[in-house]
Design a protein around this nucleic acid. Structure first.
Lengths: 247, 247
DNA sequence: TGGCTGCTTTGACCGAGATCAAGTGGGAAC
DNA sequence: GTTCCCACTTGATCTCGGTCAAAGCAGCCA
């Protein structure tokens, strides 16, 4: 039942997120120091990793799988405020309580550090602090990009935006080129997509059906998507030459 | 016509944002180093400070006034993605092109640094890098908070949310207590509010009228607002015990 | 095999907010 | 003063996406 690790625990060098995570800039010595305080944790799909308001005694990186940051209002309305992909950082140095729910959307493996030792390490290791700043600035950009999606785009454009992000991220992970059709599996349920997009799950379903009917995407089953023409999808998303974004 | 500075240029110690800006943690020596590379710039209300896509050769802090970060789609739809208040930082170390339009909403004075020297300074001054990380994390929180507003709140709740932010910010600046009525001037036009909230200006106007009619706020002229009961306003905003946020 | 259960689709209807269109009011220029 | 302008308000109508309701469909367990 527990998600199994697919790589060698003992060795940071072989870690799949070695070059992108908060430790990306670390040299051999620094890596060794981190190595000595790290530990792995696995979470099953659907499990809540951290509850909003809880005391957080660890920080860490997503090694594999996808997690989400979610806010909830008292009456139950929820909004996803971040998607955490492999190499993304969880937790906030210098703060005790978690600000959001963190949930495992798929099975997730995290590389964790107890907060105190990590904070101390950060203070004496500019490589870590600097990398974390860079990653935080990237996340801020992604969040602001997403504000445009939430505030101004139509339902159809929202769906197209989400699909293009997932397609792009998938291509960057699997190192496929940017030409030819994009093929990937949706890692989110219709409801999770709705929470991310500020829509209802019915609207998500309808708009996906519409994009399929119009030939913008092909669907095999409910999750397997083919994008025959990426430019067409980007056009549907409303941003015709959108740079960057989550990667 | 040019906005005039209200304080002593020569001296960082007397700077109104000394204790909150990116230089907050600096000691006397560091401050002196910054002092030697800083310069002030003034902008009039309505002026564009930076165009999205432009090469940015400076970074800096807002000293007084309010600026906004805005994204625009090709068809003209716009979304404000950030409000920059005194002490907020503008620009991104390590990136050349600006990602957003930055506009002066009121008359603005900025304390600027040429990007290169600032980056070099940052690399050798952990106090600056650390403070910038902290400020960026705060901004990220504010952005995510705002995603909930954009994605899930009704027009009325959005207006109430914006008013409560402005009221709170104003109280924190002017050091008024948190009891008794809040009184402040709206620093934004109806259109700017609409851009921030993902609404049209007509809807903004209607909802403000409705809140006024229901006694949640009092209006004198079009911009002068009194909030007789802050808890009532927060209730209307949908967050009944909302912590933090922009400050 | 049948019946759950969870995810998804589809339909009918409704309403919040957008759109289109006047109209108001106050300040600045003439 | 009067005129212009600009920010704002208000009204009438339309529409996109929400809401409520009913199936469809695949996987799973008994």
């Amino acid at each position: 039942m527990t998600a199994k690790l697919q790589f060698d625990h003992a060795n940071c060098e072989s870690c799949p997120i070695r070059h992108r995570a908060v430790c990306a800039r670390c040299d051999a010595d620094e890596l060794e120091a981190l190595d000595s305080i790290k530990y792995y944790r696995s979470f099953e799909a659907g499990q809540t990793i951290i509850w909003s308001g809880d005391h957080m005694n660890f920080v860490g990186s997503v090694v594999s799988g996808i997690a989400s940051l979610t806010q909830t209002m008292e009456d139950g309305r929820t909004q996803m405020v971040g998607l955490l992909l492999p190499s993304d950082f969880v937790g906030r140095p210098g703060r005790d309580a978690a600000a959001y729910d963190v949930q495992a959307t798929t099975d997730v493996v995290m590389c964790c550090f107890r907060k105190k030792p990590f904070e101390e390490m950060m203070n004496v290791t500019p490589h870590i602090a600097h990398r974390l700043l860079q990653m935080t600035l990237d996340e801020l950009d992604a969040a602001r990009e997403w504000m445009l999606v939430l505030g101004r785009k139509t339902a159809r454009e929202k769906i197209a935006s989400l699909l293009s992000i997932i397609a792009r991220r998938d291509a960057s992970v699997s190192q496929k080129g940017l030409s030819g059709p994009f093929v990937f599996d949706l890692p989110l349920t219709r409801e999770a997509m709705a929470d991310y997009l500020g829509l209802t799950l019915e609207t998500v379903s309808r708009q996906i059906s519409a994009l399929k009917k119009d030939g913008v995407i092909l669907l095999e089953g409910k999750r397997h998507v083919t994008v025959p023409d990426m430019d067409r999808l980007l056009e549907e998303a409303g941003d015709d030459s959108d740079g960057g974004f989550l990667v």
